[in-house]
């Protein structure tokens, strides 16, 4: 039981990373990005290719993050930027990200010939660390440490630094931020880059955990990311971390007490259930419609 709780928290740590990435772009850009699924995959593929070319693992991970970040910024600079400037509806933006998703996904699928590839984990920490009566795989411990660190840095960045305040101003209103002398484009690009990096990191941890990588890995993780932000409330940093950990625990307990096959279905059910009961997430604030 205690062991399962630890496992759940470890799983949840990766989920928190995913949630942080999505919540960052949602908070700043107000876009629900389906292409995020492919940032996860492309990041992991970047790392895989780097490792295959004998780059040390640490650098390979950084390369993967950079790849995902650059792809994310590229998509934002081209498609999203263009649509925002034309004042396109939220509806159209979501659909456009689905289009981008499909393009990126089919390129990744073509690259791996629709096969599941082996992800070399030689350079990642292995074995496990014993804490009291429980043991935690080192890899998951690392992902837990990194998520907590990312959360603290992100929280510090958004709340304490000048750049973070600028980011929140842009999130509130880009035209206002422009008037105050903030370069909103640069802020958008930065937020998107960071969120791409977080996506890659989650993708890499996921691949290292299973030591396999498939072009469709991102789909399931995207749903996880959505579930996390629905649980935590869109745009909330604290909510993303708590939501991620909660989802990890729920999945582990479902597998333990109900059945392993339902751990995916439970994610979707959670999304629907929480949306029905608390449309703005467990930490969100209710808005009232005005005429």
């Amino acid at each position: 039981m205690l062991q399962q709780t630890v496992n759940g928290i470890a799983l949840g740590a990766t989920y928190s990373l995913l949630g942080l990435g999505v919540t960052l772009i949602w908070g700043v850009l107000r876009v629900l990005n389906f292409a995020y699924s492919q940032f996860i995959v492309w990041g992991a593929f970047g790392t895989l290719i780097a490792i295959e070319n004998h780059v040390p693992t640490v650098f390979a991970v950084l390369i993967g993050m950079a790849v995902a970040g650059v792809v994310a910024v590229f998509v934002d600079m081209t498609v999203m930027q263009f649509m925002r400037r034309r004042g396109t509806s939220e509806f159209a933006l979501v659909v456009a990200t689905i289009g981008v998703y499909y393009i990126l996904s089919s390129v990744a699928q073509d690259r791996s010939k629709s096969q599941i590839e082996t992800f070399p984990i030689g350079g990642f920490p292995h074995g496990s660390v014993d804490i009291g009566s429980t043991s935690l795989p080192s890899l998951q411990l690392l992902s837990l440490v990194i998520s907590v660190a990312v959360m603290i840095v992100l929280g510090y960045w958004l709340n304490r630094t000048r750049l973070g305040r600028a980011t929140r101003t842009v999130a509130y209103s880009a035209p206002t931020a422009e008037l105050l002398g903030v370069n909103s484009r640069a802020i958008f690009a930065l937020a998107v880059f960071v969120s791409g990096c977080l996506a890659a990191l989650a993708g890499i941890f996921n691949a290292a955990d299973s030591s396999t990588l498939s072009y469709s890995d991102g789909d399931q993780l995207l749903v996880v990311a959505f579930a996390v932000i629905v649980l935590g409330g869109m745009g909330s940093v604290k909510g993303a971390v708590i939501g991620g950990l909660a989802l990890g625990l729920v999945q582990v307990y479902t597998t333990l007490y109900v059945s392993g096959v339902f751990s995916n279905a439970i994610t979707y059910l959670l999304i629907v259930g929480v949306l029905i009961v608390r449309p703005n997430g467990l930490f969100g604030v209710r808005e009232e419609a005005r005429v």
């Binding site: 925002r84 400037r85 509806s89 880009a174």
Partner: peptide, 8 residues
């Protein structure tokens, strides 16, 4: 239906 969000 255009959003007022215009980025220059």
């Amino acid at each position: 239906g255009a959003s007022p969000l215009v980025i220059k």
